[in-house]
Amino acid sequence: MALSRDQIAQRVAQELQDGFYVNLGIGIPTLVANFIPKDIEVMLQSENGLLGMGAFPTEDEVDADLINAGKQTVTMAAGASIFDSAESFAMIRGGHVDLTVLGAFEVDVNGNIASYMIPGKLIKGMGGAMDLVAGADNIIVTMTHASKHGESKLLSNCTLPLTGKGCIKKVLTDLAFIEIKAGKFHLLERAPGVSVAEIIELTQGELVIEGEIPEMKFS
């Protein structure tokens, strides 16, 4: 069965390592914060100028001067720091963030990502996404494998305006965990109960399948 949003987040959380500075995008990536393993320390970077983002505040703690990049009220974790937007993007562009997780509309076999604009329909802007994909080495894209109409989002060529070129190496969808290398998708894992055939059916770009593909594990 396809993974739920929470399960996608849970699988991404397994990629976190002790001491990682992590930027989580809006949507499913934000949920990753709920599944950080208890035995490791991770610090969340919010690109509006906060390193060490804490939980949502209680009603009494709400502070209009303390929000995350999704404009939600948040708190600061112990050891947090605050800085301006240029400093924040110096961290991002300078490659200091260990892991970036963000959503997308499309990804292709060359590691291109389209995530910020659907011409004529949705023109909200890229926010910090272009900086994040250009600056980070370790990026995981989370998205559904196909649209509601069954159209693949893993393509041979992105059709929408790009957010970044040749920068994506890992994609976690509701069906599969995929690596991108040498101009091809490589199937690493499949969602529990989802067959390789189903994944092939919904992957438009070239997909390499080597050996037995394991199911994702959730503890």
Binding site: E47, A86, F89, M126, G128, M130, D131, A134, L162
Partner: peptide, 30 residues
């Protein structure tokens, strides 16, 4: 539409007397 980090840097550079700067952000995009 301008990437957020580029926007911040455009202001910083403007205030610091730097007329322009190179960045990887936005390469290969509109």
């Amino acid at each position: 539409l301008t990437p957020q980090g580029t926007l911040a840097e455009k202001m910083r550079a403007g205030g610091a007397g730097i007329p322009a700067f190179y960045t990887a952000t936005g390469v290969g995009t509109p």
